[in-house]
Amino acid sequence: MNCHRVQKLLSSYLDQELSAEERREIRKHLFACAPCSRLCDELTLIKDSLEGLEPPAIGGDFLRKVHLYREGRLLQETFLWGKRLAMAAVWILLFLLTSFLLFPNSSGPELAKKEEQLPDYGARERTTLQQEAKEESTRLFLPRLPGIPVSR
């Protein structure tokens, strides 16, 4: 392995992202080559310094925007449900109004009263029919066979 190749792979070597064979070859080169060894030390120093960086102290509410968004959404949802209910009420009212205006005399109790007041023209026919049916049921049952006259 030459210096160019080793220097290209040094970062991966430090991050343990190379195969065992590649690692062995680089280690062997680093023993023999001073510039590459120096570069390796400097990159290690950079890596260690970055790893040792302290995180900043946590300050402020990171979920502030999420809270605002949720509040807005909740309000929106409540408003939406209210709107839906109002719309439903308006539709029902409209339906009732139109039905009342289109059929003003077809209300239930009034119609029943009118029916009571009207003369019953079919009452006589109904009673005669009922009498005939009663007579029919009281008669003796005789089978009616085709071609054979049946005398009563």
Binding site: L53, P55, P56, I58, G59, G60, F62, L63, R64, K65, V66, Y69, R70
Partner: peptide
């Protein structure tokens, strides 16, 4: 904590990091 650290190292400024993280959490939510 690690996310804030990441945002801070990326932006290089505490206020920018906080803004970025708030925005990111909103998007994530």
């Amino acid at each position: 904590k690690p996310l804030y650290h990441f945002a801070y190292r990326l932006t290089g400024d505490i206020n920018d990091a906080q803004d970025l993280l708030q925005e990111a959490f909103l998007k994530a939510y």
